[in-house]
């Protein structure tokens, strides 16, 4: 019967957007753990390393939230063009947060892998 074998694409899409929403901050922290990035550069890094289609504008509210939580630090750096860049780095608390998130992610991954076997 068709309705049994056909996947519920709406459900999958909703689930994927929830996963995306939940993992974006984790992805940002992993990227910022390497070096400091400015907003546009960070968007490009996300695009290079993941297949996530992220609305670029949504990144800034998230970065602001991470900053307010003390997870990232930011500073304006003047440029020759006269248009400064805002660089983001992982704070001390951000590094500890990332370590904790990595533990959780690994545990989740192991559990899911076990279930899928």
């Amino acid at each position: 019967m068709y309705y049994i074998c056909c996947m519920n694409s709406e459900f999958v899409q909703n689930w994927f957007s929830q996963v995306k929403k939940g993992t974006l901050s984790y992805i940002i922290l992993i990227i910022l753990d390497e070096k400091e990035y400015y907003g546009y550069e960070l968007v490009q890094e996300i695009k290079i390393h993941t297949t996530l289609e992220v609305a670029e504008g949504t990144l800034y509210p998230l970065l602001n939230r991470l900053k307010a939580e003390g997870i990232v630090d930011s500073k304006w750096v003047e440029q020759e063009s006269g248009i400064p860049r805002k660089y983001y780095t992982l704070s001390k608390s951000g590094k500890a947060t990332l370590t904790e998130m990595q533990k959780i992610w690994s545990a989740l991954e192991t559990a899911i892998n076990k279930l899928q076997k």
């Binding site: 609305a55 670029e56 504008g57 949504t58 800034y60 509210p61 602001n64 939230r65 307010a68």
Partner: peptide, 20 residues
């Protein structure tokens, strides 16, 4: 287009900053 409509993408930022 990639940045998105300011009314839509800035709403969470404005709401959060205003709450702060």
């Amino acid at each position: 287009e990639k940045l998105g409509s300011p009314e839509e993408v800035l709403q969470p930022l404005v709401a959060y900053k205003k709450a702060q």
